[in-house]
Simulated assay, not measured.
Amino acid sequence: MVKKAMLKKVMVNKVMTNNQTQPPTQNEGLLLNIRHIVEQARGQIKQTVNTAMLQAYWQIGRLIVEDEQQGEARAAYGKAILKRLSQQLSADYGKGFDITNLRNMRRFYLAFEKRDALRLELSWTHYRVLIRVDNASARDWYRDEAVLQNWSARALERQIGTLYYERLLSSKNKAPVEQEAQEKTAPLAQTTEDYLRDPYILDFLNLQDKSYQESDLEQGIINNLQQFLLELGKGFAFVERQKRIRFDDEDFYIDLVFYNFKLKCFLLIDLKIGKLKHQDVGQMDTYIRLYDDLHASCDDNPTIGLVLCSEKSEAVVKYSVLSDQKQLFAAKYLAHLPTEEELRVELQKERERVQAQLNNVSNAAGDHLT
């Protein structure tokens, strides 16, 4: 009996050893294919449910609005109607029909009265964020960008909160941009300047202590790279930090390197704490020239350099190579999300700067004609 038990134990160990060392099953490819089909089917079901829900909510919103439009008396007790509807629908179908959601469905229809304006790739959560945007042009632009950039609802809400559209709009001549938004044929951003912002909002870094160093700023960006890419704008991908470039037996280190697939060029970022200085601009000018020579390929467009500082100097901007170097830029970053009033002030300053440039161009053209 002892021998039999020992023999059985040896056989079990041999089987276990064989199972551990045997090659991957021949059905592994089949399993992967089946998993792919299942995941694809789940995605299609999810999209079908989302589409049906959006269309249903749009129709409900339409019916509520049309019911209100039957007369002043009808509109006068609209709140009572919504309350009664909420009670009846909740009893019939459960959650999802409280008064707040019914109001959102009403606003949903009013914001997108043309059903063709709906982008079914977005979720109901996205649309609850979008209907809070009063400006129709801005709302449509945020909707299209959310689809194009695959923004989550949270990312969309943050972009709206930091006035992404308004900041981008202020960097261009207003009339052509509004025309583009109405025609919806050309993308909003066309030039290098349109892919860069000013200011950048870096509130997600949580830099509470004002005594932070440039290394803390850089590490915070690396730790929150996804959020920084979202703030950086469309088409950017992270390449490297502290990129070493060597010239004339001297090493230079670039804080952050990105690549933009739409502009087809590298973006070098130098992080600075304090006011922008002439030497900061000159240093970045050297960086982009070296990077073009040493690392950019013949298929790449000229490298862009961005000095990201906590305070800009208009004198440095005006009287340095920034004024005529088309690949060199400076922008301000804000460590904390400003108030709406502070953002309005920043936007007004930018509009005044752009308007002054346009006036200068117009005056120069007038002088030339005379």
Rank of each mutant, 00 (worst) to 15 (best):
K4M: 12
K4I: 12
K8T: 14
K9G: 12
K14S: 15
K14G: 15
V15A: 10
V15M: 05
L30A: 02
L31N: 04
L32E: 09
N33A: 05
H36G: 03
I37M: 13
R42I: 08
G43C: 09
I45E: 15
K46E: 15
V49D: 13
Y57N: 04
Y57V: 04
Q59P: 09
Q59F: 14
E66H: 13
Q69A: 13
G71F: 10
A76E: 14
L85P: 09
L85H: 05
D92N: 05
F97K: 02
D98Y: 02
I99P: 09
R103H: 10
R107T: 14
F108L: 05
F112Y: 14
E113Q: 13
K114L: 14
L118I: 13
W124S: 12
T125C: 06
R132L: 04
S137G: 02
D140C: 05
V147N: 01
A153P: 00
R154E: 11
E157K: 00
G161P: 02
S170C: 13
N173M: 08
A175D: 06
V177Y: 11
E178D: 10
Q179C: 03
Q182G: 01
E183M: 06
E183Q: 01
T191I: 03
E193K: 00
P199Y: 00
Y200N: 00
Q208K: 05
D209S: 06
K210R: 11
Y212Q: 11
E218N: 03
I221E: 02
N223D: 11
N224C: 04
L229S: 08
E231T: 10
F238W: 06
R241M: 07
R241E: 12
K243N: 07
D248C: 01
D249A: 06
E250R: 04
D251H: 08
F252Y: 15
V257M: 00
F258V: 03
L263Y: 13
L263N: 10
F266Y: 14
L268F: 02
D270F: 03
L271E: 04
I273G: 12
K275C: 14
Q279L: 01
I288G: 07
L290R: 05
Y291P: 06
L294P: 08
H295C: 12
A296N: 15
D299G: 02
D300A: 01
P302L: 09
I304A: 13
L308Y: 15
E314R: 04
D324C: 10
F329Q: 05
F329Y: 13
F329V: 03
L334C: 03
A335W: 07
L347I: 14
Q348F: 01
V354R: 08
A356F: 09
Q357D: 09
L358K: 13
N359R: 05
N363F: 03
A364F: 13
H368G: 07
